[in-house]
C-alpha cells in the first residue's frame, strides 16, 4: 500500500509543485499546532485562574522582553496560547460544517440527479431558495432565536455546535449542485445501465456505483469549502454572532483586539489575523492544486 502510494503519479505530481508542497507544509504545521494546543500552550485561556489582568496588553517579547512571545490581550491572555486554541476551534467548526454540508448536499444532489423529474425540480428549487439566503442572515436569524431561548450564558455552551449547524445549513447547496451535475453526466453511462440490467436496487446503484464516480469534484470543493467555512466562522465571530469572547476562535480573537489596534496594541489582532490568512490561503492553494491534478483537461506538461 505504502509502496503503491510512493510510486504513484499523485505523489510525483505533488512533489513537483513547490506551491502545493509549501502550502501543505504550512497547513500541516497549523493543524499540528491546533491539535497539540494543550501541550504547546503556555497557558489555558479557558481557565480564568491562570489569567492575570495585570499582564494585560503586554507587547510581544522582542519589544517588551516579557515572558509572552506574541504578547497578551486586554484580559491578560497569552496571544500564542489563544491562537493555538482559537485555531483549534476554527478548524473544528470548519471541518464540522463541511461534513454537515457534504452529507446534506450529497444526499440531495444524488437523489435529485438520479431520480430526475418532479423530485429533481422540487429539490433544486429548495436548493435555490437556500442559496438566496446568505449564511450571515441564517446565522443572525437562528442566533437570535437561540439566544432568546437559552439565554446568553446557555448560548456560550452550545456556540460551537450552533456555528457548525449554521454554516453547514447555509452552504450545502454548493454540494447539491455539484453532485447533481456529475450524477447527470454519470447516469447516462453504460455501467449504470449495466447495473440496472444486473437487477441492483436503485439505492445501491446511487450510493455504490454513481457516488464514487462523482467524488472528484466533491473532493475539490471540499477543500475550498473548508476555507470558506473557516472564513465564515471568523466573519460571524467578528460580528459578534459566533464564538463568545471567553472561548477564543480566530475570528473572536481578531474582534477582541480590533478596538485596540489604533491605541497601540496591534499585536492582539495582527497575529490571529496572520494565522487566519495563512490557514485559508494554504487550504485554497492546496485545493487549486488538487483541482488541476484531478482535471485531465488541465494537464500541464
Amino acid at each position: 500500500m505504502w509502496k503503491k502510494f510512493r510510486e504513484s503519479y499523485f505523489l510525483y505530481s505533488f512533489l513537483r509543485d513547490p506551491v502545493a508542497v509549501g502550502s501543505f507544509l504550512i497547513l500541516l504545521v497549523l493543524v499540528l499546532l491546533a491539535l497539540f494546543a494543550p501541550l504547546l500552550a503556555t497557558q489555558n485561556p479557558y481557565d480564568g485562574s491562570a489569567i492575570d489582568i495585570l499582564d494585560a496588553e503586554i507587547a510581544p517579547r522582542w519589544i517588551s522582553h516579557g515572558k509572552f512571545i506574541f504578547g497578551t490581550d486586554v484580559q491578560g491572555r497569552d496571544i500564542w496560547s489563544t491562537i493555538l486554541y482559537g485555531a483549534r476551534v476554527s478548524l473544528l467548526i470548519g471541518l464540522g460544517a463541511v461534513a454537515l454540508q457534504a452529507v446534506l448536499g450529497i444526499v440531495v444532489g444524488l437523489v435529485s440527479g438520479y431520480k430526475g423529474g418532479k423530485i429533481d425540480s422540487i429539490l433544486m428549487r429548495i436548493t435555490d431558495v437556500q442559496l438566496s439566503f446568505s449564511s450571515y442572515m441564517v446565522a443572525i436569524f437562528f442566533g437570535a432565536i437561540l439566544q432568546t431561548a437559552v439565554g446568553v450564558g446557555g448560548y456560550a455552551d452550545i456556540a460551537l455546535p450552533f456555528l457548525v449547524f449554521v454554516i453547514g445549513i447555509s452552504e450545502w447547496p454548493q454540494y447539491a449542485r455539484t453532485v447533481r451535475a456529475s450524477v447527470l453526466a454519470e447516469k447516462k453511462k453504460e455501467y449504470v445501465e449495466a447495473a440496472r440490467v444486473i437487477g441492483l436496487k436503485p439505492t445501491r446503484i446511487m450510493w455504490r456505483h454513481i457516488l464514487p464516480n462523482t467524488l472528484t469534484p466533491v473532493l475539490v470543493i471540499s477543500t475550498v469549502q473548508v476555507a470558506n467555512a473557516v472564513m465564515s466562522e471568523a466573519a460571524l465571530s467578528f460580528l459578534g454572532l459566533g464564538m463568545p469572547a471567553n472561548q477564543p476562535s480566530l475570528g473572536s480573537l481578531i474582534k477582541s483586539g480590533f478596538t485596540y489596534v489604533l491605541s497601540g496594541s496591534w499585536w492582539i489582532t495582527l497575529f490571529p489575523g496572520l494565522v487566519l490568512v495563512l490557514l485559508v490561503l494554504s487550504i485554497n492553494l492546496l485545493g487549486d492544486w488538487l483541482r488541476d491534478f484531478l482535471n485531465p483537461k488541465l494537464y500541464k506538461d
Binding site: 453511462k189 455501467y191 449495466a194 447495473a195 455504490r208 456505483h209 464514487p212 464516480n213
Partner: peptide, 8 residues
C-alpha cells in the same frame, strides 16, 4: 470499456 464501473 463502459459497462464495468471504473472505480470498483
Amino acid at each position: 470499456m463502459m459497462t464495468l464501473n471504473p472505480v470498483l
